[in-house]
Structure formats: structure tokens, C-alpha cells
Nucleic acid binder design. Sequence first.
DNA 1: CGGAGTATTGAAACCTATCAACAATTGTGG
DNA 2: CCACAATTGTTGATAGGTTTCAATACTCCG
Lengths: 232, 232
Amino acid sequence: MATSMVVENTYGQAWQRPCVDLVRESGLGVTINLAAGQTIVVEGDPIDNVYLIVSGSLRLYKAVADGRRQIIDFLGPKDCLGLTGLGHHAYSAEAITDVVMIRYPHRRLESLIEANPEFGHSLFRLACSELGRAQQRMLALGRKSAEERVASFLLDLANRQWDAGTNGTDIHLAMSRQDIADHLGLTIETVSRIFTRFKVAGMIRLPDRHAVVLSDVERLSNLADGDEFAAC
Amino acid sequence: MATSMVVENTYGQAWQRPCVDLVRESGLGVTINLAAGQTIVVEGDPIDNVYLIVSGSLRLYKAVADGRRQIIDFLGPKDCLGLTGLGHHAYSAEAITDVVMIRYPHRRLESLIEANPEFGHSLFRLACSELGRAQQRMLALGRKSAEERVASFLLDLANRQWDAGTNGTDIHLAMSRQDIADHLGLTIETVSRIFTRFKVAGMIRLPDRHAVVLSDVERLSNLADGDEFAAC
DNA sequence: CGGAGTATTGAAACCTATCAACAATTGTGG
DNA sequence: CCACAATTGTTGATAGGTTTCAATACTCCG
């Protein structure tokens, strides 16, 4: 439904702005430059810093012993890394593209929260909206078909980039097909096949490897919401 | 590994106690009795109350149009429902068994947080630990086989009940096989088959429908962590 | 232009779902 | 207390959606 876009909007990024402000106000940050592929933090590492992304994209993932990996989320400009109340990173983070970000000492943030309790509550709401997103993804991973997952993913991405100021149908895919697969619990081949299936069905266009144009948002939404009459 | 039990421990319930205290201190609660199967809240409902579970179990789930459903989590005694910084419930909640719980007005809680900023931060950490659990489940739903998911589920349950004071290998299953299936993104048949497979392999015993005894925690842990050499 | 990495496409295999039957348990009323 | 119905769980056979394996096409860069 069209409404889901609005809802996702508020859930997705509305609380990110306070986060940005909060982190900014913590003062002295150090600018960091990362090349594509570089690792920022590893699952289990103690949290020493908070990072505010200026440009570029990251992938956050958890891995299983034999190499399987689940990408928890993709981060872009204005997103934060390391904003958790627990002492250790729950996932690893790698740069997908070249990334510029600002690093702040986590300790400074803590004292700032103590000084301004309002921030504590903002962080709580931020965590809650993240939680909402996580639950939405559990539904997708546990109960949606491959097509439904890809449709959900594209719409989610469109909404996040819409917040960031794009037109809402032209999506930039910073990540590879493999990343998308690892995010959706599928294989690269399945993702590829479904992209072409959507293209053939006239639901999307694929100008190039890193671009998707949603040409039939309604049909994609129906698919994503499990309204069955898919038409592919 | 054995360590994962310890880790899960701290992630799982450590921050629940402050939650309980917090909610309790908000004063005047009303005791509520629910029969098995009754609905407490529906996805999308505005949040008016916070509930503290005294006895019994709940299931929290999100549903898709055509009836598919993903159980986000199971709640038991000392767990709280409605502790979110967002205005609406992200999921529906139903009683699995008969349930006794205490209802507090959400507004009262808010004023309490304002009065005592310390609580705001506690809530933040609570939300973060929930988030950690959610991410762990995304990994399971997206990248683990049916056997691995069931093993993870049993170990997770054992840890949560361990926190609650059980011996750590005798698990009580308040929920049905269907509930387990909807939690793990499987069908009831697959869950049933894997239970018997584990039983035949000597990894668990099934005294009755609502009980599981973990007789080989190490092998279950290896399976859950994807250490491949399953042995079934 | 060539080569490496990435994406697409095809064929076969596999895991899990679906369909169906049966067993076990629980609850109910005679 | 037993008999029966209803519910829940188990087991089997088959089907189907994704994965896996393999080959080909594309794209980016040196």
C-alpha cells in the first residue's frame, strides 16, 4: 500500500536527525577516510568510538563459522555507527564504497548524555525505531518469498533515499548483488533472476549495475505486502 | 560453544530487571487476567499502557495479509510489553496460556522517566539488548538451516529459563509447534520432524508435548553455531 | 585490448513446504 | 469412568522454490 511508504518514513529516519545533532555536539571529531572494502569494526570489539557517516556506504553483518553471512543493515550518509548502550559491537562493519566519516570518542558521548538527559530519551527512541525495522525484516526473512523480499528491499531503499532527498523512484545501489543476497537471505543468482523477472514484468528498469528505477511502485508494494496477485 | 550461553545470558535478560523495577515504581498498577488465546494488543494500536507479566506466556507477532505470521518473540514472567519509545505497537500480542499481568498507564511511565533521567538510559540499554537479540534472529532466519534454527531456539529458550531459575537443560515449552514454526520461519511439520531427528540422535528428550530436555548441549551448540559436523 | 571481477542465465539437486493420513492428547458429556 | 470428538502432533509421499554447479556475458580499468 502507499501508506507503508509513509510509515516506513517515520520509522526509518525520523529519529536519525537528533542522533546526528547529538553526535555533532559532542564536539571534536576526527575525519576518517576509508577505501572500499575496508573494515571499520569487528563483531565483538569493544566500543570505543561513535562514527557519523559523511559520504559513502557501509554494510553491517554477522557471520557464521563457515563463511555464511547475514547483512543486518546498510548505512549511508547521516547514519551513525556505534550508538549502542551495550559495550560491544554486535556486528562487523565494512566500507562498501570509499567512505568519509567523523569519529568521536564514545566516552565523550556518554558524558554528554549524562549532562543532557533529553538525549538519553532520544537514543531510546532511535533504538526503538531500529528495533521496528529489525522486526519488519524478521517478517521478511521468516515468512516472505524471494520475490516479496526483493520488492520489500527496493521499496525500503527507495524510502530511505527519499528521506535523503531523491525523487523516490530512482534508486542508487551502492552494494553488490552479493550484498543484497546476504541481506535478504538469498543467493546472488536468485537476486539476479528476480531483478530480471521484475524488469521483464515492467515493474523496474535497470539502467546500470548500480541503479534501479521503480516503474510500478503499486505492483511492487502489493508484492511486498504479500497481496499474492503478483503478475510476473 | 559454551561461551555463547554466557553471552546470550547478559544480552537476554540482564536489562530486564531495571525494567521491572522501573515499571513497578510507576505505582498503581491494575491486575489483569487473560485466558489462553486472548489478544492483548494489535499491531498498529496506539500505546496507552505498559504491561508487566506476572505469570503465563505471550506471543508477539506480525502478520501478512494472507495469514502468514512471524512470531517476533515470546514473553514470560518479568517481561514487559509496551515499553517502546514509538507511539504504536509494532506487533500484536496474544496470550499463549492463561496470563496474569499488571497494567500501568504509559503516561505515568513517561513522567517517571522525565523525573528520573537515569531510567531513560536504562530503557535505551534495554532496547539495545532487544536489538541484539533481533539481529541474532535475523542471522538465524536468513542464513541458518532448519536444524540450526531449531537448535538455536532450544538453546536460547534454555538460557532465558536459566535466567529465570531453571536448571538449564529442562525446558518448558509453553507454545505449540505451530508457534515455534512461526517463530523460526518453518512449518509445523518441519519442526516436528527435526524434534524427532534430535531425539533419535540423542541430543534431546521429549517427555511430553510441553517439555524438552537437552541431553547433549555441546552438540546442539555446535549445530546452532553452524559448525557443520551435525550428526543426525 | 585483455583480464579480473561482477552479473546473468541455464540445468540439476536439495531442502523445506505441501498434501494427506494417522497417532496421541485433551477435553466433554453421558 | 469411559467413549467420543476435537485439537495437536507425528509421519510419509510428493511437489516446489531456491540453491548449487556451471557456463556465458558484461563492465570496469589498467
